[in-house]
């Protein structure tokens, strides 16, 4: 698999690294950040925590809203993007890059199969 896979809740997951070093990078899409508006704070998960697919991964706060981010995939949190504490706007500016939220060690790679690829997600967003 290459590139990102997407959920209908506008989260993405991207695999990086190989073999034992393989990690899943999770974040929210450009569409999501645009809907949220200026992001002011992100409550990130603790490394070591386990999260189920569809379980709460993070909370994103804008000035007038707080939105839950659900994990697109089950796994163990390896690290969270602590740089967002100081620069929450990174999620607005570069959601797929600097604005990633957490890295997970995947439990079940088959879970990825149910997610949308880029073309499917683009079509999904256009349908909204």
């Amino acid at each position: 698999m290459s590139g990102e896979r997407y959920t209908k809740d506008h989260e993405y997951v991207r695999l990086e690294g190989q073999g034992d070093d393989e990690v899943a990078v999770v974040g929210v899409t450009d569409y999501a950040q645009a809907q949220l508006g200026d992001i002011v704070f992100i409550e990130l998960p603790e490394p070591g925590a386990r999260v189920d697919k569809g379980g709460q991964l993070a909370t994103i706060e804008s000035v007038k809203a707080a939105s839950e981010v659900y994990s697109p995939i089950s796994g163990e949190i390896i690290s969270a993007n602590d740089a967002l504490d100081d620069e929450p706007g990174s999620v607005n500016e570069d959601p797929l890059g600097r604005g990633w939220l957490a890295k997970l060690r995947i439990v079940d790679a088959t879970e990825l199969e149910g997610l949308m690829d880029e073309n499917a997600y683009r079509a999904f967003v256009e349908s909204l």
């Binding site: 704070f41 706060e61 007038k64 707080a66």
Partner: peptide
């Protein structure tokens, strides 16, 4: 500020 902590936004959380 930081109103996202408060009931009118966060409601049951």
């Amino acid at each position: 500020t930081l109103s996202a902590r408060e009931q009118h936004i966060r409601r049951d959380k």
